[in-house]
């Protein structure tokens, strides 16, 4: 496989081979990765090729295998089959060497709550054999970026949730990893901290760090350079957010109604309607041909006595795309 080429998901899936735009070096490569827990196939034959400077997003429902993939890439969980290469090092053969190049931040970063912010950073720095000078310089820089510079003497246990998560990120970055693995890093983090968090991630990407993150937030998914859609332990789709949107079959309509549930009932199963998705006060309806279907929808809703205030064609969000792609998959 050539550098920059991407293969993901089942090898027989034709719409997953996409040329990456830049020719940056590959930093993470996983081939035929599988892991079962008892009878459950948590991860099934995954292929990943991720290049330096990417922010690669893993998205999928709970139990899709996101955390399992992360842990295998981090070298803390051994796969049943397949191989992983991180920054040129075979993770399975030499996990200790690979771990020097990567950093893994689980959903909840393990901090020593009875140690101070500075002591936690010191501890994780020493574990990675970071020199004293490097550690001091880097921690000052990271603490400043995270807005934690004034809290160095505070016990980690006395920090707020967002601050803890940022401290976790600092500890994870203290050894200047080439690859950063983040498992739902901003779950339960306030919007301001989330912004700062992403600010740090963008800076890292600038400096050539590869970032792989899983997220449940669709707005975060949109910020990724590429996304892998996971379902039941397999990568179903893998592409840039823009191209994923383009691959979505059909056209998306947004309908505003006082009674979105009745609206969904009325339209589900109707000819030409590919999918109906509740999005708060509005309903996203995917149709094959808007010119033909919009009048049909109006007529059908009038029949069912569902009043609507607006019907318009909209650009799909990542959530629409994923629901649509997974729906299509189920039908075929």
């Amino acid at each position: 496989m050539a550098t920059g080429e991407v293969m993901a998901g089942k090898s027989d899936n034709t719409n997953v081979d996409v040329k990456s735009t830049d020719a940056a070096p590959v930093t993470v490569r996983a081939h035929g990765l599988s892991k079962s827990f008892g009878a459950l196939k948590a991860v099934n034959n995954i292929e990943l090729t991720i290049t330096a400077g990417e922010i690669f997003g893993l998205v999928g429902p709970d139990g899709a295998g996101k955390t399992t993939i992360m842990r295998m890439l981090a070298g803390v969980l051994s796969p049943d089959a397949g191989n992983i290469e991180v920054d040129g090092v075979d993770v399975i053969a030499d996990p200790e060497q690979a771990k020097l190049h990567l950093s893994y931040m689980p959903q909840r970063f393990g901090l020593y709550e009875d140690l101070t912010v500075a002591e936690n950073i010191f501890f994780y720095g020493e574990l990675f054999s970071v020199s004293r000078a490097d550690r001091l310089a880097r921690s000052q820089e990271l603490l400043k970026a995270a807005g934690l510079a004034d809290f160095q003497k505070r016990l980690a246990g006395q920090l707020s949730g967002g601050m803890k998560q940022k401290l976790g990120l600092i500890c994870a970055l203290i050894h200047t990893p080439r690859v950063l693995l983040l498992d739902e890093p901003t779950t339960g983090v306030d919007p301001v901290s989330r912004r700062e968090f992403w600010g740090i991630l963008y800076n890292l990407r600038e400096s050539g760090v590869t970032i792989i993150l899983s997220t449940a937030y669709m707005d975060e998914a949109e910020r990724c350079s590429r996304l892998a859609l996971l379902h039941a332990g397999e990568i179903r789709y893998c592409d840039t957010p823009a191209r994923l949107k383009a691959t979505m079959p059909g056209v998306l309509l947004a309908i505003i109604s006082a009674n979105p549930r009745a609206l969904r009932e009325a339209l589900t199963g109707q000819t030409g309607i590919l999918g109906v998705l509740l999005m708060g006060d509005r309903v996203h309806v995917r149709v094959d041909d808007p010119a033909q279907r919009i009048p049909e929808i109006r007529a059908s809703l009038a029949n069912h006595h569902v009043d609507i205030t607006l019907i318009e064609q909209v650009v799909p969000g990542i959530e629409d795309v994923f629901v649509a792609l997974l729906d299509t998959e189920k039908v075929t």
Binding site: V76, K99, S103, P106, F109, G110, L111, L127, F128
Partner: peptide
């Protein structure tokens, strides 16, 4: 350490 998550964190270091 297992419960708080520091065990996993330490294990992703080269220790």
């Amino acid at each position: 350490e297992r419960e708080v998550g520091t065990l996993e964190q330490i294990m992703v270091s080269p220790i």
